[in-house]
């Protein structure tokens, strides 16, 4: 049941407990209790809105920085990851298997802002061996959601036997 609640909320976090209860055929109280428990247990970590910033006039730049680091004895990658993710500019950090170690996503107002963050903050860290900055040109799909797909009209005939 918790998995079902999570799938529903992951798709639409604005669903009310009443809706969820009705859709799963259980009581509102049960749903509310489960959600509360999952929030407290940090299973549900937050509720976000998908925004297509390209449609808003404000300038925004997203970059993926591939970071190679030297893992530290006793702390592995966690310590360095923490030093990176604590910056407000950083929106996501993943530890990767492959040609680099950390995938760091950065949101900035301009190319300049992103580059100066990389040069001043990231590249200068002791354990960082190298960085490669990739700028995002366009987001097509994020979190399972296809951007800019006009919500297509229901093309079905209005009445079908």
């Amino acid at each position: 049941m918790r998995t079902k609640i999570l799938s529903l909320l992951e798709n639409d976090s604005r669903l009310t407990t009443k809706d969820i209860a009705a859709m799963l055929g259980v009581s509102e109280a049960e749903v509310a209790a489960d959600i509360k428990a999952m929030e407290e247990g940090k299973i549900i970590c937050g509720y976000h809105t998908m925004v297509d910033w390209d449609k808003v006039s404000e300038e925004k730049v997203t970059a993926l920085i591939e970071v190679k680091v030297t893992p530290q004895r006793g702390q592995g990658f966690d310590k360095i990851a923490e030093r990176i993710y604590n910056f407000d500019e950083v929106s996501s950090v993943y530890l990767m298997a492959g040609t680099y170690d950390l995938a760091v996503f950065i949101n900035g107002k301009s190319l300049k802002e992103v580059s100066s963050f990389v040069y001043d903050k990231l590249a200068t860290m002791e354990t960082v061996i190298s960085t490669q900055t990739n700028f995002v040109l366009r987001k097509y799909k994020d979190h399972g959601l296809i951007f800019d797909r006009a919500k297509s009209e229901d093309e079905r005939l209005a009445i079908v036997p």
Partner: peptide
Amino acid sequence: VSEMPHAISLGVGE
């Protein structure tokens, strides 16, 4: 229904 652009339909069997 075809004449009513704002109608919602729960009449579709697909």
